[in-house]
């Protein structure tokens, strides 16, 4: 089905189009989210409530033909609420594992920073391992498995912000932001978005996503581009503005994300612009700025891009 870049691009175009009908004016973010999924990563959306985080996740799941479940994270959420629970079956005289909401191809973890670290790590471990272990028994998670977590930056009291080590598990962190005024007007005039969601038709089946994910390997990564990646990570490690630079895992993620982005653009090889396009999403949440530096949080990635020359 997708054996070359052109046909892969055709598919991703359709996907982006479909999601774009629901989420207006967020082409960049939609493409980033798609790239994240194509690169086999998990996505963290950080933004204020009501800008369409959930809607984005739902429409992505629907157009990708993925099974979807939503977990609302609260402070009293227990790991079992996420993973599932073993219940004693009297008929069979044994414990039977009841799968939790985690067992879906796309899981929306809403307000992930509200839950206690124990529950958070249950999710994060599952993201990493692609399986859960209950009572010494391992359960494979459905494939493909994509987690989209959301965070609310505004209300930090009584929350448990994800530590850097955990943030690293998310390939990308993006924000959505308010829509522009004309688009918001269109939103106000238009149909109910949740109702429209039902009209979305899957563009591919869930089984086809792995093939699409595999297609990013068709995009070439040249030595010149690797030079650029290394120049960027070197800058974050050496520059005094940064307390924490980018890890090798971040570099790998960068390349994969850039490959996926390049595929969406239809490029045969990753170009510097492809890397630049995904850089903020991939790097920003992994960089910790020195408190002494005057740089604005969230601007760190832009600063790196502006400073580092393309080799």
């Amino acid at each position: 089905m997708v054996t070359d870049i052109a046909s892969a691009k055709a598919v991703t175009d359709k996907l982006a189009n479909e999601v774009g009908q629901i989420i207006l004016g967020k082409e960049q973010e939609i493409q980033l989210a798609l790239a994240c999924i194509l690169a086999g990563g998990h996505l963290l959306i950080e933004d204020v409530p009501g800008v369409g985080k959930t809607l984005m996740a739902r429409s992505l799941a629907r157009s990708l033909g993925l099974s979807f479940s939503r977990i609302q994270f609260t402070s009293d959420l227990m790991p079992a609420d996420v993973i599932g629970v073993s219940i004693y079956q009297q008929n069979d005289n044994r414990f039977v594992f009841h799968k939790g909401p985690l067992f879906a191809q796309m899981v929306l973890a809403d307000e992930v920073n509200r839950a206690a670290p124990k529950s958070q790590s249950a999710l994060l471990e599952a993201m990493e391992e692609q399986q859960v272990t209950v009572d010494g028994e391992s359960w494979e998670l459905p494939q493909p498995f994509v987690v989209i977590a959301t965070q609310n930056p505004a209300h930090q009291i009584g929350t448990y912000p994800l530590p850097e080590s955990q943030l690293d598990r998310f390939l990308m962190q993006i924000g959505l932001g308010y829509p522009s005024e004309p688009l918001e007007r269109k939103l106000l005039r238009g149909d109910d978005r949740r109702g429209m969601l039902k009209t979305l038709r899957p563009q591919i089946s869930g089984d086809e996503l792995p093939a699409l994910q595999h297609a990013i390997k068709l995009v070439e990564v040249s030595e010149a581009l690797l030079d650029y990646v290394q120049a960027l990570t070197r800058y974050t490690r050496e520059h005094p503005d940064f307390e924490l630079g980018l890890s090798p895992r971040a570099s790998i993620d960068l390349i994969n994300a850039a490959r996926a982005w390049a595929l969406i653009q239809g490029h045969a090889g990753v170009q510097p612009e492809d890397l630049q396009s995904v850089f903020a999403a991939v790097a920003d949440h992994r960089l910790r700025l020195n408190s002494a530096s005057g740089a604005m949080p969230g601007q760190a990635a832009m600063q790196v891009l502006a400073e580092v020359a393309i080799p």
Binding site: E220, S222, H267, G269
Partner: peptide
């Protein structure tokens, strides 16, 4: 240039 630099590996 892009073809030579970024696409021929």
């Amino acid at each position: 240039y892009i073809r030579l630099r970024y696409e021929s590996v």
